[in-house]
Nucleic acid binder design. Sequence first.
DNA 1: GATAAAATTAAACAAACGTTTAATTAACTT
DNA 2: AAGTTAATTAAACGTTTGTTTAATTTTATC
Lengths: 211, 211
Amino acid sequence: MKPSLSIKQTQLLDSAELLFSQKGFDGTSVRDIAEAAGINTAMISYYFGSKEKLMEEIFERKSLNLLENVEKLLKDDNLDPFQKMYGLVDIYIENILQRKAFHRILLCEQIINQNPSIIQMVERMKTRNSENVNELIRLGQKKGLFKKNIDIPMLTNTLVGTVSYMLINLEFYKKYHHMETLKDEEFERIVKKKLSVHLRTIYKAILTHES
Amino acid sequence: MKPSLSIKQTQLLDSAELLFSQKGFDGTSVRDIAEAAGINTAMISYYFGSKEKLMEEIFERKSLNLLENVEKLLKDDNLDPFQKMYGLVDIYIENILQRKAFHRILLCEQIINQNPSIIQMVERMKTRNSENVNELIRLGQKKGLFKKNIDIPMLTNTLVGTVSYMLINLEFYKKYHHMETLKDEEFERIVKKKLSVHLRTIYKAILTHES
DNA sequence: GATAAAATTAAACAAACGTTTAATTAACTT
DNA sequence: AAGTTAATTAAACGTTTGTTTAATTTTATC
């Protein structure tokens, strides 16, 4: 387990996460971060070693959460494969839209492969996720619920792609449906519900329909 | 119509596009770009005014292509709404995977909203695309082929999200399916075909199944 | 309350940044 | 061939960058 952080360290991480998600890693200076956190610039190197390592720290702190929720769900013996799959979809929706800043950074970092430590972390996450989904799909197939020859990364692409692109597109979506006057929480509740229904329809079609 | 560019201007734009897609806008220096193009650094300001304007020039040159292809397809009276919809899906797949560098930049820029000129350009594209899809869906509904109450931005989210996330995820996808030894063109042909079949299944489900 | 360790600061560091300058070369125009 | 414009260059510009330093303050230990 990672050593717990002081208040100031947490403030720096939070400020950095927000700024990275708004201006990108290279578009954010250590002075920006320190100022936003109300802390002296030198403290970033003092605490984390470098700006790069601060970024890695953000990833290490935030990236495991989703996988752990999924694995807890898959262990639940009271749920059938469909319920588990729909639950998995909802966990992704909830997690991505709850941790918007981090998932925006995650998206950018996957495109701009610069930091080897982060690339490795993301790759491990993807592999572990695929293994989880693979196990679930085999179970569904054994029970005769899911069809054969399901392309797991393709399925996950659609899940993560749809939710992530919604994250990118939130403001456009709001405008298109004339929901500008809604309170933020209400708007997000609606979006999550819509995503859930939408992706269930998709998953059902992909998992059951023979081509 | 934009004035045509000299060879050196095109070289700068091409080098910049590639580097922006690999290291991001802020991670790429004008010296990087000039060196990659084999041209003096000062020429960037001389030709385009600034690094920012160079970026805008890339967007102006590359962003219209997809929309024009779609609009040509939608005008074709020999195709029924399903054929048009599937054709639209294939245009997106083809365009995004053909212009990888640009679409990686486009993704990043949508996340990191910094340049107002580019935000505006992207927003116009999205609006015009939604109008096109809206028209097509109304046609399909009038003919009794599509169901009512289709969420257009949600549908497009899944299309662009799935293809874009595949773009981000290409290397992982290749590894997962043990296609490392395949030639690049062959691999991409397979990916495009898989995406096409996958998204047709999705679109059919979303457009027809009553919930 | 003295001593040691940790935290915090302002200042300085060299390197890299985007852009401009002024001088030179190349390309046209008449 | 002379004159004019455009293209190209190396160098310099002033900022900003991430990081380090050395001095100071705060905190903890005995």
